[in-house]
């Protein structure tokens, strides 16, 4: 499934396995900053491949605070040695936002700020992947009023190419697909202007939404639990951000259980979009940038143009008044003329 995510055909799978089993397992260094570890948790629950296959067979996970057996100075030493040993070859994964306020003191690991760690670890990285919305653009920690000045890895590592995989949590298959492509071919997927792989972030939720026919037919749930909601109508009016959110959720579900917010009757939250997630209130609707036709049709002779009865009245009154005034005034003329004729 992860191979399918990057768009390689079935015949490529042996090649992936082969490349991975040649002992060329790339070193992965995984940093946790301001976050909830939801992205890791999500990854742990993926099955195609299983996480153990990934970390035992496909990559060499040299530093990961959640999955590490080691702790304290031992762990920090592992990080140092992995960076030294695989300089220029390791993949750096960043999970979590990086606080920048007050010198970045709001997140420290081994007495180093997240800012320092990110900069140091990225120096010799072959590829940098920002996993989840927090690492991609700040996520929850950057929500207003953002007391720690939290921001995403691309904003800190401005001189590096950072692959961002926003999502709260990020879809593990997008991550696996990106990593496997790098492992197999040594390349990164095509990215959009925000560093997101186009294979997963080229289209909006709305474009592939299973509830889309209801949208086109104008059938909307108006409030939670109403008849339309039960019938599975479109959730747009409940605040669904699908039309403004580029993500693969409507085609590639989470954690192999085929459950996702819109699927269970909750509007999309727009978690992948910096401008939407944690910014626009949950139940506020978003504008639709490029709307598509509904499933209704205008008639050939649809009525158009309007006639204001008030304007009609005014125009009639003015025209009448002018004619009347002219008539009346001409009547006066007649009298005067008679006088004058007498004078003459």
């Amino acid at each position: 499934m992860a191979a399918a995510a990057v768009g390689v055909s079935g015949t490529m799978v042996p090649k992936i396995v082969q490349a991975a089993s040649k002992g060329l397992k790339p070193s992965v260094i995984w940093l946790h900053f301001q976050e909830c570890t939801g992205c890791t948790e999500s990854l742990l629950r993926s099955h195609h491949p299983e996480i153990e296959d990934l970390i035992l067979d496909l990559v060499s996970l040299d530093y990961h605070e959640t999955l590490f057996a080691a702790a304290g100075h031992q762990a920090e030493a592992a990080l140092e040695s992995a960076m030294k040993a695989n300089a220029g070859k390791y993949v750096l994964v960043i999970e979590g936002a990086i606080p920048t306020k007050d010198g970045g003191i709001y997140c420290k690991i081994g007495n180093k700020t997240a800012l320092e760690l990110a900069k140091k670890c990225s120096e010799n990285a072959a590829a940098i992947i920002a996993l989840g919305s927090c690492a991609s653009w700040g996520g929850v920690p950057s929500a207003d009023p953002n007391p720690t000045g939290a921001t995403g890895a691309p904003m800190v590592l401005t001189d590096k190419k950072v692959v961002t995989l926003p999502g709260c949590p990020a879809n593990p298959y997008i991550f696996l697909g990106t990593v496997l492509q790098f492992v197999t071919f040594g390349t990164l997927p095509a990215l959009d202007d925000k560093g997101r792989p186009l294979f997963a972030y080229a289209r909006t939720i709305h474009e592939d939404c299973p509830r889309r026919p209801h949208f086109d037919a104008g059938r909307f749930a108006q409030q939670f639990g109403d008849e339309g909601h039960r019938q599975g109508y479109c959730l747009y009016k409940l605040g669904c951000k699908g039309p403004a959110t580029k993500a693969s959720c409507s085609t590639m579900r989470f954690g192999d259980v085929d459950a996702w917010p819109i699927g269970v009757g909750h509007p999309c939250f727009g978690c992948t979009e910096k401008a939407v997630g944690f910014r626009i209130p949950l139940h506020e609707t978003v504008p639709i940038d490029r709307p598509t036709p509904p499933d209704t049709y205008p008639a050939v002779g649809a009525k158009q143009g309007k006639v204001s009865p008030v304007a009609t009245g005014i125009a009639g009154a003015v025209a009448g008044a002018l004619l009347g005034a002219g008539w009346a005034a001409s009547g006066k003329l007649g009298e005067k003329s008679d006088e004058k004729r007498k004078e003459d």
């Binding site: 086109d216 104008g218 490029r290 709307p291 036709p293 509904p294 205008p298 649809a302």
Partner: peptide, 17 residues
Amino acid sequence: EPDRSGIADGLHLAPVD
């Protein structure tokens, strides 16, 4: 520029003519 005038809620590309 999309014409949304054909349907009241303005969500669709819905020109009348």
